[in-house]
Amino acid sequence: MRGISGLLILMVLVSCTKKSNFSSIQVVGHAGMGLSMGNSMFHDNSKEAIEFALQMRGCDGVEVDVQLSKDGNLWLYHDTKLESESTGAGCVPNKTTSELVELHYKTWKKEKLIPLADLDPSLLAGKTLYLDLRTVNECLNQSINSALLIQRLNEIDFLHIPEIQIILVTNNVVLANQLMDSFYVVYLDVTGYQMAQQLLQANPIIKGIVIRNSAISQEEVKMIQNLGKKVVLYDMRSAVGIRKALKKNPDSIMTDDLREAIIETN
């Protein structure tokens, strides 16, 4: 009995300790409510997950994964192969809209795959939407048609509303330059600090980088920011991981546990 009382008192004391102030760091839901998270209410990149995240106070935006279908429509799906998470098989760039519209995720709720154009712009007002652009058809080992990708992006009306901040993310430097020619804000998806530094020096027009939390230190984040570039960290699931990322003082975190990240920053 004494032990239990002690544990309860300890919990109260721990929960009352003062937290650091991370309120200036933007909190972004990775693929909606988080990627492959057991405690997420919906599957990543589903309309339900994205809308649920955007309606949460403290959520500054969401990141979604965008792939170009065979008939040139932009669809939200993370993995390279459809069979890994959905009822389909093959790759999104080999499927037409009429085939993709029939698919759903292999979950209890059977959320449908959705095109980018189906997102509700009213929920995105005042928020940031990160579009992670997939540029390779892994089934054919071919690059996708970047001119068609840019054309399709240009055709989606809500990507050009001033109330919604759109940031395009790619690991393809050629595509990044093409996108910037079309007046998009582009961040590079990089794997390490050295790579980030080289690419940012060679392409000074790029506005920021997206990098795995474990691949960059606090000092390196600071050095990238000193170049006038934004730093977005991703791949953090636990409270400890989120706190470690926040202590690096990035501009944004793309978190897999949105509730935990909002608690930490408020």
Binding site: L8, M11, V12, V14, S15, C16, A239
Partner: peptide, 13 residues
Amino acid sequence: GFGLNRSCFQHQL
């Protein structure tokens, strides 16, 4: 009950 992860590691009951 109390959620251990959030109560102990996140300072949030």
